[in-house]
């Protein structure tokens, strides 16, 4: 089983998670290849965020295994921090470090976790900020930035670690509508540049234009997994079609 793990960038196998009596994840498996972009959709409470957190072990799965290339993060003695440092994570509510200006927020990972020298780490951080279009905000504290700018700094923070994979947990749902665009723009750019991305999101426009595949989750399992066009045109499950219609009514389709 282990032998073919190295062929995939990410391999998730039969992940289970329960909180008290409620089983949030009931055996989820999928794989991702380099430069893939996959978008996970589904109603709230179906375990999408939990799945994302299980992948870098911010939440401990009860059962199941996760590999990044040939490193198993779920192993008993796995170097969790080293594997995490190769996966970027972007949170719904940004979680920037309040006491650090934008540049330091981005630099702290390369400098303190990877042990890169301060000067090189600064260069890396400046490049990451430039990628998200916030070079001029390097010295601003999080409280001095708009929500959209904060989320872009958070993306830069993940990016500066040169991750093999980036996980996005509803990156735009805490934002005012007029600020969503600037964040999605950055994400589209990253996807086009070949970043491997796993995104939990309700932004159907983004999913349709960028995703190689959409994963529809319901009741703690993957119900359906397909390229966007075939899923929109020809959903295999009744629930998928219902959900897609409902979400399109709610969010519209910005195409």
């Amino acid at each position: 089983m282990n032998s073919d793990s190295a062929d995939h960038l990410l391999r998730v196998e039969d992940v289970h998670k329960r909180y008290g009596r409620e089983e949030v994840l009931r055996g989820v498996s999928f794989t991702m290849e380099r430069a893939d972009t996959k978008v996970i959709i589904g109603a709230s409470g179906t375990g999408k965020s939990t799945l994302l957190r299980c992948i870098n072990k911010l939440t401990d799965p009860d059962q199941g295994r996760v590999w990044l290339e040939n490193q198993e993060i779920t192993g008993r003695r796995a170097p969790v921090n080293r594997i995490r440092s190769q996966m970027g994570f972007v949170f719904q509510d940004f979680n920037l470090f309040t006491h650090l200006p934008a540049l330091d927020n981005v630099r702290i990972g390369p400098q303190r976790v990877k042990g890169i020298r301060r000067r090189e780490a600064t260069t890396l951080a400046q490049e990451a900020l430039a990628t998200v279009g916030l070079k001029e905000k390097a010295q601003s504290y999080p409280a001095q930035l708009s929500g959209g700018q904060q989320q872009r700094v958070a993306i830069a923070r993940a990016l500066a670690m040169s991750p093999k994979l980036m996980l996005f947990d509803e990156p735009t749902s805490a934002l005012d509508p007029e600020l969503i665009g600037e964040v999605l723009e950055v994400m589209v750019k990253l996807a086009k540049e070949g970043m491997t991305m796993l995104v939990v999101s309700h932004e159907m426009g983004f999913a349709r234009t960028v995703a190689d595949e959409i994963i529809f989750m319901e009741g703690g399992v993957i119900l359906e997994q397909a390229p966007p066009e075939s899923m929109f045109r020809n959903p295999q499950h009744k629930r998928t079609g219902e959900f897609l219609r409902k979400i399109s009514d709610l969010y519209g389709e910005s195409e």
């Binding site: 995490r84 190769q86 994570f89 979680n95 920037l96 990972g109 976790v113 958070a154 923070r157």
Partner: peptide, 17 residues
């Protein structure tokens, strides 16, 4: 805020860091 601790862990920082 606990979210910042999670962010630190997501970068690969251990408890001491």
């Amino acid at each position: 805020p606990p979210g910042q601790l999670m962010a630190a862990h997501s970068l690969g920082m251990g408890t001491m860091k």
